[in-house]
Nucleic acid binder design. Structure first.
Lengths: 115, 115
DNA sequence: TCTCTATATATAGAAAGTCTACATAACTAG
DNA sequence: CTAGTTATGTAGACTTTCTATATATAGAGA
């Protein structure tokens, strides 16, 4: 059997990427806004450190999965907005599929969570 | 809201612990056997490197979550068998609960996986 | 007997990735 | 005009896994 990319050791990284790609997928976002939306949508459960978020965004952009463009806003303020590329959409779909596999296998081993 | 311990950054570690505690929970196991069972039960999806597994077992033992005891087997062969302590059972239950919370929030953000 | 493979435990150092803290700057409300 | 929020970014510490190596027993096959 082919070993999944979403094994436990790489889990953190792929989960972060999936969260980011999913939120960007709902419309153009800049980094700071993205972190806030993640926190709001999860009732504070998830939260990116900025020192974690920005390097991941840079990496995703370098890999061609998202496209960033600076936008002048106000007289001096600039924000960098990101959107998914076609490759990014494919990548997100593959991560979702991997996630399903992970969840199924993981759940089978850890058992049910009845109280 | 109280921040969960099973956030994305700590996910890998807690997943590994949960897998280990779950398999040990089904009966006394030694390390090598544990790795094999994990691989078999997940159809090869999961697999521990030995360099990862043994340090985790030592840490869990040091923290009083599992108890290890050497057992003479054959004339010269020794194996170290592990079993869950009462504290380990509680810890596993808390990890399971955290996992549920994680999954619910994560799924809400990444959306459905329809093809 | 000898050799190769599997079983079994363990550790050292490399590699990957996140976290904390800091740096910079503009906007906003009082 | 000052304090807090918005906004992006980097450096270095820290945590954890991964790869590779070391050691030793058991069993199968030539």
């Amino acid at each position: 059997m082919q070993r999944a990319i979403l094994t436990v050791p790489t889990l953190t990284r792929y989960c972060n990427e999936l969260l980011i790609l999913s939120i960007i997928g709902t419309g153009k976002k800049h980094g700071y806004d993205l972190a806030r939306e993640l926190e709001e949508q999860s009732d504070g459960f998830f939260g990116f450190n900025h020192g974690t978020l920005y390097p991941i965004l840079h990496k995703l952009e370098k890999d061609g999965l998202i496209r960033g463009s600076w936008k002048q806003e106000g007289p001096r303020r600039k924000r960098k907005y990101y959107s998914l590329t076609a490759e990014g959409k494919k990548y997100r779909a593959s991560l979702l599929q991997q996630w399903e596999g992970f969840f199924t296998h993981f759940r089978a081993i850890i058992g049910e969570t009845a109280p």
